[in-house]
Design a protein around this nucleic acid. Structure first.
Lengths: 170, 170
DNA sequence: GTGCCACTTCAAGTCAACTTGAGGTCAAGG
DNA sequence: CCTTGACCTCAAGTTGACTTGAAGTGGCAC
C-alpha cells in the first residue's frame, strides 16, 4: 500500500530531493522505511497537491506548514484564504496593468517608447510604487527590510518607500 | 542641476544602497561626484521608473540591462515586449484560477476543504502542474535546473515534471 | 582648522526553496 | 556471496536582488 519515494516522485512530479526537503521541514511525513528507502502513505499525494496549491497562491513553505494541524489534517483558516485571495487579486490587477502597457508598447507606432503617452503613464505607475516587482515578493508574505541601524528613528523616516506592494490599507 | 544620491533615493523611493548596486550592475550611471558623493542626472528618475516597470513585468535586472542600448537610450525590442506580455497573461490566468479557488474555499460551507468539489478541482490543477508557484519564478525567465548528473540521458527522463510553468508551446 | 556625519568602498551576509556532492548503506539480482 | 544501483545523510552550494558591516574620506558648519 505504501509508496516508496521514487514512486511518489514519479506520481507527483516532485523530485525526491524536494520530498526529503519537505519531510525535513515537516510538510510531509514518511510512514516507514524499506531498508533506507522512505515509504509514504498514498495520501501524501494529496498533501503535495495542497502544498503546490499553497505555493501557487503565494504562501511560503512555512506558512503552508502552519496550515496543517499538529495531527496532520489541514486546518485552513478561511479568513487567511480570503485575505490571500484579495492579495492575489491586487497582484492580478497590477500585472494586468503591466501586461496591457506592454502589449500597447509592443504595437505602439511612436518612434521611441518614451514618446508614447500610454507607455509614459505606465512608467509613472511603476515609478510611484503602484506596481511593485513580482518575483520573490509578488504574492508572498514579505518581510520589510529593517533599516533600524542606518535610518535612526528620530530622523524623518519618510525616506523609505512605503507600501511597495500596497501593503497598507488603500 | 544634478541630484545627489540621497535626493534620488528620496524622489524615487529606491534606497541609496540599491542605487549603488544598480550603478555597479550598469543599470544607471552617475554623472560625477561632489567629493565622494555621487551625482545623478535627473533623467535617472525616468530610468529608475523604467527599471521598476521592467521588474514589475517580470524581467530580471540582467534582462533590463540588456534593454538599454550601449548609448544608454532604451531600445526595447517590441517582440520581447509582446512575448513578455503573453507570458504575463498566462500567469494572470493561472493566478486568477487560484484566486477564484481560494475565494470559493473561503466561503465554502463544506465542513472540510477536502470535501468541497471546487477545492478538490483546484487541487488537481495544482497537482498536475498547470499552475506553478509564483514567487521567484512567476513571470521571470527561469532557468531549468540541470539534472544532467543525477538523471542520465538514457534513463527514461519522464521522471522530471515537464513545463511546471507552461514553458513549452501550449 | 577641525570635527562631524553622511557618504564612500568592498566583502560578506541574507533569504527562500531547493539542488548538489561526497561518502555511506542496503535490498535485490545474478 | 558479492556486486550494483538507488537510495540514504549531512553539509555546502546556488540564484537574484539586495542589505549590512567595517573601515575610510571629505565637504561643510562652526
Amino acid at each position: 500500500m505504501a509508496l516508496d519515494i521514487t514512486e511518489v516522485a514519479k506520481r507527483s512530479g516532485v523530485p525526491a530531493s524536494t520530498l526529503r526537503f519537505y519531510e525535513e521541514k515537516g510538510l510531509i511525513v514518511s510512514v516507514g522505511r524499506r531498508g533506507l528507502r522512505r515509504l509514504f502513505d498514498p495520501r501524501v499525494l494529496e498533501r503535495l497537491a495542497l502544498i503546490a496549491l499553497g505555493r501557487a497562491a503565494g504562501f511560503s513553505l512555512d506558512e503552508i506548514g502552519r496550515m496543517f494541524a499538529p495531527d496532520g489534517r489541514p486546518r485552513i483558516d478561511r479568513r487567511v484564504l480570503a485575505s490571500k485571495a484579495e492579495e492575489l487579486d491586487r497582484t492580478i490587477q497590477k500585472l494586468s496593468a503591466v501586461r496591457d502597457g506592454l502589449q500597447h508598447a509592443a504595437v505602439c507606432p511612436a518612434p521611441s517608447h518614451m514618446e508614447c503617452p500610454t507607455f509614459r503613464r505606465l512608467l509613472r505607475g511603476a515609478a510611484s510604487g503602484t506596481i511593485g516587482a513580482p518575483g520573490n515578493k509578488l504574492a508572498s508574505g514579505r518581510r520589510e527590510p529593517e533599516y533600524s541601524k542606518s535610518a535612526k528613528p528620530g530622523k524623518a523616516p519618510r525616506f523609505r518607500r512605503r507600501n511597495k506592494n500596497n501593503r497598507g490599507k488603500p
